[in-house]
Amino acid sequence: MPTTRPTTRKLSELLDPKFMARLDSLDLLSRKILQGKLQGERRSKRRGRSVEFADHRPYVVGDDLRFVDWNIYGRLEQLFLKLFLEEQDLTVHLLVDASASMGMGEPAKGFFAKRLAAALGYVTLANNNRLTISLFGDGIRAQLPNMRGRNYLPQMAEMLLATECDGLSDFEKACRDVETGRIGSGVTIVISDFFFKQGYESALRQLIGARYDLYVIQILSPQEISPELAGDLKLLDIEDADAAEITVSSALIKYYKRNLAAYCDELRNFCTNRGAVYVQANSADSVETLVLNYLRRIQLLR
């Protein structure tokens, strides 16, 4: 009891209990797994695990007859194959940007990202999927690999809350590290603002693969979407202290917004062209709406 109470409080800082209750009914989906896998061809690499029944699939000519569920045939006179839990074993990699740029914004993008990561992590762990959560800045700053089960929820919450958004961002290095440690199949979700001066393309390319779905969630703060600046300013980049001297005028703001839209569109096109899914979120929006409505719509969650 004494150990659970402080950690329960910590998770509740990220997700309130009502939201958690609704998350309980959700599950993650991986399209790659549901599509076109010949039944039975995949052998479980894990020996010694019990095979648990998970789901049914309609019989197609050529499937292995050993896995036909005869009870359903007896009842419905239709052939269905049994799908086993091992085959549904998703590995979810959450890559959360914890660089200094995520700490900006009102409300802070970083906190939004952590809440979103906590929600997705909760769904993953609640459904006994494998979760690896990585917070990156300049490379991977913190990582909890291969968590499975609800027991890991407090640890996840603690890591998320303890890590401050700080430091430079080296996205490429982080993606490389994640990719090398990636096993099995599943879903990779990257949560960031994607303001990478070195570019994101080569990094994201590494994350794209045959076995993992890639979901790109870009979080922007309202101040970045519609800046309210005025006068002669010297803008300092929070990460590398790069300075930009501007004299705010309506023309400048117009160009900025245009550039922002172009940047996001470019990212969206990159993702779409490579079969990844792009989601843009505003840190002023509610995490609940994003998770419960939008992510279900795009079939990340079910």
């Binding site: 603002d193 010297k234 300092l236």
Partner: peptide, 9 residues
Amino acid sequence: EVLVSSTLL
């Protein structure tokens, strides 16, 4: 001087 998340854009 104003801090921004990124001066890229």
